[in-house]
Design a protein around this nucleic acid. Structure first.
Lengths: 190, 190
DNA sequence: TTTTGTTGATTGACTAATCAAACAATCCAT
DNA sequence: ATGGATTGTTTGATTAGTCAATCAACAAAA
């Protein structure tokens, strides 16, 4: 009956919360550990250093996001349905929480320094791209890749806008905007 | 014959460069001052504290961006021309430099803590929005505001993508993508 | 007893901000 | 012109504080 997984999970959750509070990676391991109800030394014991703790937190966020997306894709019958589900999942309350978005924002910043973060981000990007392309191709053929770039970029951009102004750009309206853009992209406009 | 403006300018440039190097706000005033060829104390003397130095740097970036946009808008004859110019200006080499994008990224992060940064960012957002709406209205009428949200969001999103992967998403291709999205949005798709 | 889990104490490196003083250019009175 | 005061510019040294990371030691369970 090891407590290790529990402690790790506590620390990961605390990391996300703490980043959400300060809005930056400028949180001490001490603050995180305190929130998790353990000592700072334990965080180092389990994760080695601060960066790896952050990365574990992002992996956790990506895992949840990935599971939700897979669920939405599995539930959709047609390509249209699956795209719809994919977009809605991206903006679901779970992934669109204030602190999760703050973590994402700082993840992008970290990705410029830390290679491990860059790799993790690349995985997210290429998965999103291939998910989009997979269901766009039956609808638009060769344009799928380009359209996927734009839809993916729009998702990221609206995330960013929400991070700054959650009242103006809510999760609901962001999803509606992406769906509207998708409409325009796949509408047979000759 | 005061040298103050020159020193301020040196420090602002050095701030942008230094943030571009490390990719984060985690640069010491000492590093910035060293690059500017002055002492750290002088940076404090002129700017008060670190945040204000960074804000001065962002104001500088926004000023240049604003001037370029105004130029592009003035040069365009039709709404279509002006939108085209606005988008191209947003992705011009000046505004799409590696270190400038790094500054933007960290600006978004700072805006969650510092009110002054949040206000500055709000000014950028509302200017972009109103510029877009102004020239979209003649083309699409009541949809202008919504479309402007999407185009603005896409611009921000593609910025973000370039920050991570400048080879895949270049300034040129980002501008092309936004223009393509604009096409789809204003194309009379009946 | 051994293993596993946990911590308090400590350290060494680093940092924002301050301050008194040095330096340089300009001005004014003689 | 000349010397002394004035003002603006710049820095080295210092302060007061923070933080990541380590480690020896303690507690509990097996």
């Amino acid at each position: 009956m090891s407590v290790e997984p529990q402690r790790r999970s506590q620390l990961v959750e605390a990391t996300i919360t703490e980043i959400g509070m300060t809005g930056s990676l400028n949180v001490t391991v001490g603050q995180i550990a305190k929130r998790a109800g353990v000592s700072a030394a334990l965080a180092f014991h389990y994760f080695g250093d601060k960066d790896q703790l952050f990365l574990a937190a992002m992996r956790h966020i990506l895992t949840i996001y990935g599971a939700e997306v897979r669920g939405a894709l599995a539930a959709g019958a047609s390509p249209r349905d699956r795209l719809n589900g994919l977009i809605r999942a991206s903006f679901s309350p779970t992934n669109f929480r204030r602190d999760v978005i703050a973590a994402w924002l700082n993840f992008y910043v970290l990705a410029r320094r830390a290679d491990a973060a860059k790799r993790l981000l690349a995985i997210y990007h290429s998965r999103l791209q291939s998910n989009l392309v997979h269901d766009l191709r039956p609808l638009v053929g060769a344009d799928a890749a380009d359209i996927a770039q734009r839809i993916g970029g729009l998702i990221d951009g609206l995330y960013l806008r929400n991070a700054i102004n959650p009242e103006v750009m809510t999760g609901k309206s962001a999803a509606a905007h992406v769906l509207a853009a998708l409409e325009r992209e796949i509408g047979e406009c000759k």
